[in-house]
Amino acid sequence: MKTRSETSLTPARDAAPSEGLLSQPAALDVLFEQRSPAEAEPLEPVLEARAVTVRYGAAVAVSDVSLDVHRNRVTAFIGPSGCGKTTLLRTFNRMNDLVPGAVVSGRVAYHGVDVNGAGVDPIEVRRRIGMVFQRPNPFPKSVFDNVAFGLRLHGLKDDLSGRVEEALRRAALWDEVKDRLGKNALGLSGGQQQRLCIARALAVEPDLLLMDEPASALDPISTTRIEDLLRELRSQVTIVIVTHNMQQAARVADLTAFFSVEPTGGDEHERGGVLIEYGPTEQLFTRPADRRTEDYVTGRFG
């Protein structure tokens, strides 16, 4: 069962109390029944975001977001398009460093260390915090070389083929590609390419994996395979997944954060992505504390 502390992950907000019970689609309730007992483990933050604000020039994309990402849990970021989910995710592994004009303020601590702190090498941050992108982006190299890329990069060259096989197995792709390791990865199907990208990220053994809508470009069967994979990976690696598919969040995530675009400054026209509510997925979907969350998860959004 959920502990009390788990239900108050969101830093205090003057959220409007939920009005009455929600009429939930029955399918979601069934999903929550099937949760593994692993959730009984205590929560341990891997990454803590505090008052994170990201601006692109004058435009605020993420406004004053504070949340914790917990070890061996799948955390979903949901919310309408443009609410800053991708931008926030990219502050975690400093990918926003590469975007001209992006300015990050606030603190992102990974195992207690500020990832933007002096003396922190973004290369090391990105090695520990892996990322999978919205569209599968394998290199135009062989399947093997794709997975070996990060290993070679970081000098993990002993037993290279063993490590590559291990990563492909963890990404549930080994059986499909073991006979074509030397073939160009672009010959794989979209779903296989995305699992290859997951294998490529897992190969360097990150302890946190960021996934930005990893299934949005895939067909339903490939999507199901990725979701199954996420449930398997949860015991080995901490996962943050951005999705705009609420069913997906309900199916794979232990914890869910809901973001929305809201007025940020005193100026009514200044709007940016704000964290509305963060808590156990089941609670967020069945007993949301905020009216806006309720509207979104019941499809009354917009």
């Binding site: 990918m95 290369i123 990105r126 992108f133 982006n137 290199f139 990060g150 990069l153």
Partner: peptide
């Protein structure tokens, strides 16, 4: 650009990314 991002997200420097990903492509 997504190929460069993939390389950088694995912890490659920009120079490595150019040498190993961009130029071969």
């Amino acid at each position: 650009a997504t190929l460069r991002e993939a390389s950088l997200a694995l912890g490659a420097t920009r120079a490595r990314t150019v040498l190993r990903v961009v130029l071969p492509t």
